[in-house]
């Protein structure tokens, strides 16, 4: 038994037939081929599957695909524009904010969500916020540095635009 869903993913209209038990993360990965969203635990502990649903940060292993019917989803693939990385992505590259890269899409999405809410976070705020995600490789130091750098870049963007 399947159900048809329709949603916007990274600005594009998509749909599909899903079993009611299909997790959103599996729908994105297996049915839409958006494999940038990773599965590290499938029980909401690691944050590797973090995406935005209607602008809110969500662990997509904790949501059923049917619950996303009618929603607007942004995954890691939707963050950059062709030819240019998003400032959060760029900062992770610059600051070596990753090693194996498996946690990275989740950290980038979580950092992006943090900076949308709080454009100028302190180190403590960054650490508190990103404690939703786990990285087994980096020891977090360069991730925190990346978020700080991204905050500065985004601030420059805003001031240069106004």
């Amino acid at each position: 038994m399947t159900r048809a869903i329709a949603l916007t993913v990274n600005g594009e209209q998509c749909g599909g037939d899903v079993e009611p038990r299909t997790l959103l993360v599996h729908f994105l990965r297996d049915q839409l081929g958006l494999t940038g969203t990773h599965v590290g635990c499938v029980v909401g502990e690691c944050g590797a599957c973090s995406i935005l649903v209607d602008g809110a940060l969500v662990k997509s292993c904790l949501m059923l695909a049917v619950q996303a019917d009618g929603c607007a989803v942004t995954t890691i693939e939707g963050l950059s524009t062709p030819g240019a990385l998003h400032p959060v992505q760029e900062a992770f590259v610059n600051r070596f904010g990753l090693q194996c890269g498996f946690c990275t899409p989740g950290f980038v999405m979580a950092s992006h969500a943090l900076l949308m809410r709080n454009p100028n976070p302190t180190e403590e705020e960054i650490r508190r916020d990103l404690s939703s995600n786990l990285c087994m490789c980096t020891g977090y130091v360069q991730i925190v540095e990346a978020v700080k750098e991204a905050a500065v870049t985004l601030e420059q963007w805003r001031t240069s635009r106004t």
Partner: peptide, 19 residues
């Protein structure tokens, strides 16, 4: 030197077995 691996990982273009 700038990371060669990082650009693909930050944009979700890494290729792991499950992908």
């Amino acid at each position: 030197a700038r990371s060669k691996e990082a650009p693909r990982h930050v944009s979700g273009r890494g290729q792991y077995v499950d992908d």
